[in-house]
Write a protein that binds this DNA or RNA. Structure first.
Length: 646
RNA sequence: GCCGAAGUAGCUCAGCUGGUAGAGCAGCUGAUUUGUAAUCAGCUGGUCGGGGGUUCGAGUCCCUUCUUCGGCUCCA
């Protein structure tokens, strides 16, 4: 007999060799029907694998992330089976589960398929799923495995096999399809009830552009048709919220081929919104003891040679511009830190001056590969809400913690409530990619991890995600549709102070080297606004929205009063808005204001003019009654106060 | 940068196997003076992304280039 501990702490005894599925069945039939895989002693395995020793057991269902992964991984195999049936001779690369579904990279051996073929593949998959084929696991020797794929002429699997050790190789089969796979998989295909193949794309074999381009087919599956519908609805919603679409509709920004790709033009409304964000951040920074500085858009090549950026990115930047007479070379600044280092150096510093917090909304230019550009979230010219904190080594942690506070304040004010902090460390294997000495890296990494802990942040650690000069704490936010975005970043840097020979005089009257913290709560304003647009679907917080109120005249008879109301709101209450005095029906004016997502509409006819009141209509909600102007103003300002008092 | 798809009026889109470029909205002009998501009528607006080619004739076919979109790779 073996002892099995369940997640609730209860202990049960079973005969040795009992499967997780059988354990589930002993608890309830219903549970057994929903078990996709099992986590045994922390490792996810097939629910049909026998348990041979005492263990902790978590039965995984659709409600568990790992359960979903099992489902999707098995779905990838199902798709492969369908592809093999429909397109004989297809070779298979890898087919993993991903965050939302799965993909399989395949080589159609010369045949080409288009997205029109996807429904056909879906159909085949459904057909195969209905056969309730069992996923069978088989341990196999390396030689046998090689022989199998030689026979199939699948060079990709053979290549994968090269990296595997004999004795650890398993095959999984379902129906007529067998794949090299470590699993785990579903008990059988019947769990896959709803299937959608979502996209078709090229992807290099093993992600290396020197390799052959395979066809990647993305898909997602569900245990119920209803869940697929919900998912498709979510996709629709995401399309509606696309910041590129809303940016156009709400007249926030524009791209012009003539200006250049990836170079956003801010229209008046977008610029107004942006200015407000900047003001908001300036105020917060002023309170946190930051000092504004300003640096030019270009910097001498030598500046970047000193900083090390030239060596690292010189060839991949916009190429330098040169002075006509002397031929001196200048780069468009790709970051503000070197400039700020020179500001630090402009005068001798005492330990009493530190921390010195230099802040700048600095516009930087980076050559991003053409295929990378995407609306506002990936551009070639953007403005960072940048600051560099120069501090003594003993101040690093405290300063780091303060920056975390600031970042969290910003997120709250903008209604981002779901985020994780990603501790981005060096690639464990490959330390040569980074500059700076080992001891400092270790110090910096520790400072970050400790600060994140101290602040009680939900943290994940990612290796290989550090900047080349230092580790980072990146804030990953989840938007209203559950999509993840990287926004703010905080970075500890021992390297630039070294390169720029930054110094301060300590209390011991000796020269010391300060530590630098780079930080940008928004990251880039462009990217942040892009994400914000999608997060709030264009319904910005009242304090931020370009136009808070639309004042609409019912007929031209009321125009004078409308203008009077607007003036009062602007002058006395600092409320932003516009008057719609056009010779159009009130219905049309309302419709347009609704489409522009103006939070409040004031409908003004003869009634209101006579009573010296306003009829309020709330965006998305409708008529909210007739009230005094100052009551309306109070209502607006109250809401703003609520949003900003956190 | 690489693979694939797409570019038609300011916007959203139609235009079949090649035969004189269309609609709605927006804009302009006029009528109407309107009560909570589109009042009516008229008008303007396009070297069909750019450049080459095939053809009697190209939005449509071919080549090339640019941009956009979906991915890959990248992201100081």
């Amino acid at each position: 007999m073996i002892k099995v501990t369940l997640p609730d702490g209860s202990l049960r005894e079973y005969a040795k060799g009992t499967t997780s599925l059988e354990v589930a069945r002993s608890i309830s039939e219903g549970l057994a029907r929903n078990v996709l895989s099992a986590k045994v002693n922390g490792q996810v395995i097939d629910a049909s694998r026998p348990l041979n020793e005492d263990c902790t057991l978590q039965l995984l269902t659709w409600n568990d992330t790992d359960g979903k992964s099992t489902m999707w991984h098995s779905s990838a195999h199902l798709m492969a089976e369908a592809l093999e049936a429909l397109y004989p001779g297809t070779k298979f690369g890898i087919g993993p589960a991903i965050e939302n579904g799965f993909y399989y990279d395949v080589d159609f051996n010369g045949q080409s398929i288009s997205s029109d073929d996807l429904p056909k593949i879906e159909q085949k998959m459904l057909e195969l799923a209905k056969t309730n084929s069992v996923y069978i696991r088989k341990e196999i020797s390396k030689n046998e495995a090689i022989a199998y794929f030689r026979e199939k002429k699948d060079q990709y699997k053979l290549e994968l096999l090269e990296g595997l050790e004999d004795g650890q190789i398993t095959f999984y089969s379902q129906g007529n399809f067998t794949d090299l796979c470590r699993g785990p998989h579903l008990p059988d295909t019947s769990f896959i009830k709803a299937i959608k193949l979502t996209a078709l794309a090229g992807a290099y074999w093993r992600g290396d552009e020197k390799n052959k381009m395979l066809t990647r087919i993305y898909g997602i599956t569900f245990p119920k048709e209803k869940e697929l519908k919900e998912y498709l609805h979510l996709l629709e919603e995401a399309k509606k919220r696309d910041h590129r679409k809303l940016g156009k509709e709400l007249e926030l920004f524009h791209f012009s081929e003539k200006v250049g790709m990836g170079l956003p033009l801010w229209l008046p409304k977008g610029a107004a919104l942006r200015e407000r964000l900047i003001d908001f951040m300036k105020k917060a920074q002023q309170q946190a003891g930051y000092l504004p500085v300003v640096s030019p858009h270009i910097g001498n090549k030598n500046l970047y040679i000193t900083s090390g950026h030239y060596e690292k990115y010189g060839k991949d930047s916009f190429q330098p511009i040169a002075t006509p007479q002397e031929g001196e070379e200048f780069f468009l600044k790709p970051m503000n830190c070197p400039h700020h280092c020179e500001i630090y150096k402009s005068s001798p510093r005492s330990y009493k001056d530190l921390p010195l917090r230099l802040a700048e909304f600095g516009t930087v230019y980076r050559y991003e590969q053409s295929g990378e550009l995407h609306g506002l979230t990936r551009v070639r010219g953007f403005t960072q809400d940048d600051a560099h904190l120069f501090c003594r080594p003993d101040q690093v942690k405290e300063e780091f913690c303060k920056v975390i506070d600031l970042v969290l304040y910003v997120f709250k004010a903008l209604d981002f409530h779901d985020y994780t902090a990603q501790v981005s460390l060096r690639d464990k294997e490959n330390h040569e990619k980074y500059i700076g000495d080992e001891a400092n890296w270790t110090l910096a990494e520790q400072a970050i991890i400790e600060s994140a802990q101290e602040k009680g942040l939900k943290t994940v650690v990612e290796y290989g995600e550090a900047a080349f000069y230092g580790p980072k704490l990146d804030f990953m936010i989840k938007d209203a549709l559950g999509r993840k975005w990287q926004l703010g970043t905080i970075q500890v840097d021992y390297n630039l102070p070294e390169r720029f020979q930054l110094e301060y005089t300590g209390s011991d009257n000796q020269k010391h080297r300060p530590v630098m913290i780079h930080r940008a709560p928004f990251g880039s304003l462009e990217r942040f606004i892009g994400v914000l647009i999608e997060h709030c679907a264009g319904n910005f917080p009242l304090w931020l929205t370009p136009e808070q109120v639309a004042i609409l005249s019912v007929s031209e008879k009321s125009n004078a009063y409308v203008e009077q109301v607007l003036e009062q709101l602007q002058k006395n209450y600092d409320i932003r808005g516009y008057a719609d005095l056009r010779n159009e029906s009130i219905g049309k004016k309302i419709r347009e204001a609704e489409l522009k997502k103006i939070p409040f509409m004031l409908i003004i006819g003869e009634k209101e003019a006579l009573a010296q009141k306003v009829a309020v209509r709330i965006h998305g909600k409708g008529d909210a009654g007739i009230i005094e102007i100052n009551d309306f103003a109070a209502m607006v300002n109250k809401e703003i106060e609520n949003d900003l008092s956190i």
